[in-house]
Computed example of a mutant assay.
Amino acid sequence: MSSYAKELEIAQLAVQRASILTKRVFHEKAKGTVSKDDKSPVTIGDFGAQALIISALKANFPDDEIVAEEEAAQLREDENLRHTIWDLVSTTQLSDPEAEGMLGGAIDDEEAMLTLIDYGNSKGGAKGRIWAIDPIDGTKGFLRGGQYAVCLALMVDGDVKVGVLGCPNLPIDDSAPLTGGMESGQTDEGRGVLFSAVLGEGATSRALTTGELARQKDISMRAITNIASATFCESVEAGHSSHGDQAEIAKLLGITNPSVRMDSQAKYASIARGAGDIYLRLPVSETYQEKIWDHAAGDLIVREAGGAVTDIHGKRLDFSIGRTLSNNKGVVAAPAAAHPEVLKAVQEVLSKK
């Protein structure tokens, strides 16, 4: 039995329920939307998913702290937006009564929803049990019907112990190759994956469902015998990672396969199950600090699938400092055996800048 068996199950069910809400938001409200203004579908989905996840965590682990992206001040001032989100939150549940019951049942009212959202205000740190939530990671991917992720991780004394990613638009089939067509126009058929890991216990995938958890499968990164045959995953947005530097790194490594661009921690999930091989997030700003909720779950899942994850200096990602990865610059994720070669190429290219 896992040392974090309850935490893992609650996290999986909470992410599964929140993923249902995000899909409802997309199908009911996001068609034709391309911007993130205050009433955009991603705003509705962010708040709603965060409320549902925190509700489950507080029902089961009331003393744990939570680091999350959203706060409820905007909803207290915007009655229409608050009502819209409450309508979704109050009517989204798992179809399996036992699974729904494990999450603590329904949220009482709008005020309770606002209180739950604001529980995500922890400053993080190196002591105690802290959950990190990104309710919709990959804003533009979500809006275009491409890749996004519902992300949840548990850190204990600054070390990530449990990680769960809900990726509603990734193919269920772990062997499905990455393609350039994954970034828009996805259908629900054959798609929707829940990725999970517990420190020291490996990584798994299973189909996202609307009720109880589906049967899991072990996943692992692909063994690379020749680095030139590898496939990169990178961010869609050039503002998130330097595409030019990555092209130079690929050239240095002899990699000719086209990079696959997708939003969110779906990149971590994709390389963890061997659909891709290398994920680079290269710094585009001297001052930008990555948020812990953008990396905690994916970092653990890749490492438990046989990968290594560091920053561009070869340091492990440090989740113990606060709400950001202030001790790190960039991300280099690759199969453990290939990671030193990839890191060397990254450092050689970046040293010329």
Rank of each mutant, 00 (worst) to 15 (best):
E7W: 09
L8H: 03
L8C: 01
A11M: 05
R17E: 10
I20E: 05
K23A: 12
R24Q: 14
K31H: 13
T33E: 14
V34W: 12
K36S: 13
D38P: 00
D38N: 12
P41R: 05
P41L: 08
V42E: 00
T43P: 00
I44W: 05
G45P: 04
D46R: 07
F47L: 12
L52P: 01
A56G: 01
K58A: 03
N60I: 07
A68P: 00
A73D: 15
D78G: 05
E79A: 15
E79G: 06
W86F: 11
L88D: 11
V89G: 06
V89F: 09
V89P: 00
S95R: 13
D96Q: 08
G101M: 10
G105C: 09
D108W: 05
D108N: 12
D109P: 02
L114A: 06
L114M: 12
T115K: 13
D118A: 10
G124H: 10
A132V: 11
A132R: 13
I133Y: 09
G138R: 03
R144L: 12
G146Y: 09
D157N: 15
K161P: 01
G163R: 03
P168F: 08
P168M: 11
I172F: 05
L178A: 13
E183V: 09
S184M: 06
T187F: 09
E189N: 10
L194H: 04
F195N: 01
A207V: 06
T209Y: 07
T210I: 06
E212H: 10
L213F: 09
K217I: 05
I224P: 02
T225L: 09
T231P: 00
V236K: 11
A238M: 10
H240D: 13
Q246C: 12
E248G: 14
L253K: 08
T256I: 11
P258I: 08
R261A: 11
D263K: 01
L282W: 11
V284G: 12
S285L: 09
E290V: 03
W293L: 07
H295Y: 13
A297P: 08
L300Y: 09
E304C: 01
A305R: 05
L317N: 02
L317Q: 07
R323V: 12
R323W: 02
V332Q: 10
L343D: 08
V346K: 02
K352Q: 15
K352W: 02
K353E: 14
